[in-house]
Design a protein around this nucleic acid. Structure first.
Lengths: 251, 251
DNA sequence: TAAATAGTGTCTGTAAGACAGTATAAA
DNA sequence: TTTATACTGTCTTACAGACACTATTTA
């Protein structure tokens, strides 16, 4: 491969107009658990289309950043979340490219799943970014059941549903649920996360038996504030849980 | 929402130059099984960059089609595969958007997983499309082990590896493996697919016991061409296999 | 002491892995 | 008849689900 003429030429082989181009956005499905309920961060749209409707936070992918980098940047810009102090799990979900999904123009969106660590009792504060009239937390299962707030703008209801599905599925065979908790957590906290995401109760005793081998015991104890024995504090170690936990069959 | 002035205005609220744009391609990880070995369809690049190297088939997403539609179109254009006669499974894999992944310009690629049905003894014919010097089938596990052909162009080795990972994982809890076989197949054929993808032998008796409840018996029998009892012909019914099959732990 | 939570033990049913044994058809 | 493949049965081990029970702390 020593044809340096061709090497020089190929850099000019593409010119604008030779190929179709699209606007690329990174949309965010941001999850956090509070009071045993899974919540998603949503913004209320301040402009058309879908003015006044709830939508996923997101924004354009810059010319010199990857979609993942844009997702991280948008997370702080659009929701005001401080990434420096907060451990954050971020992974790509899927890409939505239906030609008519945005009535203004061709917009392709790379959706991302974001998990925020909380202690289960308070949600991180979110604030609206540009173009948004407000930002807040909404219960996910209620939203998807057609309850509070109704359907989201664009195809964001579908994206939210697929984000939940991805998280619920991944929790069967990984310890990713721990990313919704502080570095150290109790088994009850972890079980609460599972119940919040799966929207189903789990037997505490069996959960302990199945989960313990995949966690690391710090030796420390949580102070028992509600009465009862103090729970051991764990950290997540393994990436994969084998055999997988089985989610209760939902009818 | 009855402010029709704003309704009229928003269609012009975006102009070229207001937002970054990217070229969008659909790349294909095309799998088929032959002789108990998982193969991928690859093209040899006819032009720079990576001239002469193997790459995934793919091409630009048109201005009026979704990435999935483009993937289906490229499948026939770039590999010459006739989609009319062939049952094809196509699903989105992931999107690759690293700014430097194509040295010519900003190209974001939506990768797709394609499963072609074969009888296990012959691979569908593939032919090169535009810009390709040739197209052929290559054994996947050998390629990824660094064997035949070396690494692929661009980040295509990574995409191929993640495509394999997706397929192998999905085969644990769905009957998607049947999409690599004709409409009707024997349990031995299906087991061969599992062994080809997982690159590990499976006990025939136990495989039958675990898989049969998720398949439908047609009542017909395959003719025994190699000696031995004629195997029953099944069709795939269930989408989910519960509890999941456990893949042999690989060391 | 009463109440609440954490964690363990036990029992039963089911399924996995290993593998022997039987049935069916081609050479 | 030999051989090769398809399929079933059996045995052991292991884990899931259900749930009782003990231990540990706060009020």
């Amino acid at each position: 491969m020593n044809d340096s003429n061709a090497e020089r030429d190929y850099l000019e082989s593409y010119r604008p107009g030779d190929y179709p181009s699209v606007a690329l956005t990174a949309d965010l499905v941001v999850f956090a658990v509070n009071g045993g309920v899974l919540h998603a961060a949503l913004v209320r749209r301040g402009s058309h289309p879908f003015r006044g409707r709830l939508a996923l936070p997101g924004g354009f992918v810059g010319p010199r950043e990857s979609a993942e980098a844009a997702a991280g940047r948008e997370l702080s810009e659009e929701t005001g979340l401080d990434l420096g102090t907060l451990p954050v799990h971020l992974e790509q979900l899927a890409t939505y490219s239906d030609p008519g999904r945005d009535p203004r123009m061709r917009v392709v969106s790379v959706a991302h799943l974001v998990l925020l660590a909380t202690d289960g009792a308070t949600l991180p504060a979110v604030s609206a970014g540009t173009d948004a009239a407000g930002a807040d937390w909404y219960p996910v299962h209620d939203m998807l059941a057609g309850g509070a707030g109704g359907s989201l703008a664009f195809d964001h209801s579908q994206i939210l549903a697929e984000g939940l599905q991805r998280l619920a599925g991944k929790m069967e065979y990984t310890t990713v649920a721990a990313r919704l908790l502080p570095e150290e957590f109790t088994l009850t906290q972890l079980r609460t996360v599972y119940e919040a995401v799966w929207n189903a109760p789990l037997a505490a005793g069996n959960f302990t038996r199945k989960m313990t081998p995949h966690l690391e015991d710090t030796g420390r104890k949580a102070r028992a504030s509600t009465g009862g024995a103090p729970a051991a504090l764990f950290t997540a170690t393994d990436r994969y849980v084998h055999p997988p936990l089985s989610r209760p069959r939902q009818e």
